[in-house]
Amino acid sequence: MTTTKSAYTHIQTGPTRKYTVMFQIVAVIVVIAAWYLLTISNLVTSDQVPGLGSTFSSIVQILSRPNTLHDLAVSSYELVAAFAIATIAGIGFGFLLGEYGRRRAGVRRVIEAGLGTALATPKFIFLPVLVLLIGAGYWEKVVYGLSDGIIIMTLSASAAAYTVGENERVLARSYKMSRFQFFWKIFVPSALLPVIEALRISMVLVISGVMLAEMYISNAGMGFLIFKAGTEYNVPLLVGAVIVVAALAVALNSLFQFFERSLGNWHS
């Protein structure tokens, strides 16, 4: 069992995994210790680096006061919507693109190149234009937040569809599977691992997208809270909000890694 080589060798199991977890715990402790030492030293003022205590109480406040909880809720709704749309639509588009591209490799390459360019372009600079064009409400923030995620998901699902083996296709054909059955019984399971990997990257992009949109075109949400705390020089609130968002991202990342690991165990 332990000698089984997964196709996805980066998925850590056994001792490597244990060391990684240990490393992560040690890193957190080191950062907190360094932070503490910095605050008790005379190198920085409490305006520059807030104390551990005041930061902790600002985190508690963010998680307990109605108005900040509202910000958290607004961001969560936007994130969930943006992430869900990016995932479902991206996998759907990617599947169609990959399948269609088997016949029309040229079309597929052109579309993928276009998506690659769109991904490489910093959409941030278009944000003011976007606001003028489509406004600055809930859905605008969602659209902005999902734009990169959907591209990543499309590209990765397309690659996955493209690599479903000839064997599986012949098998599907010999059992007269419908397109729908092929999608659910062959494509989804065989694409699951690469797609979950892409989900992690997509999630990071969606979080950044939503935060950015909130900072610039919103009056609610964690991005707005961070922005406001910054302009008001409320450093404990600023750092606290950043930590809450970062913790959310890390937690989601770990969740996906957990899925990848448990899938990697049966998906050889």
């Binding site: 064997n167 599986e168 012949v170 098998l171 010999s174 059992y175 007269k176 019984k185 062959i186 399971p189 065989s190 699951l192 049966w266 998906h267 050889s268």
Partner: peptide
Amino acid sequence: PDLVTIVFQDSCLLPW
């Protein structure tokens, strides 16, 4: 598939 089925050289099992 209900009349004729094929067994391939490579067993072609779905690993999942």
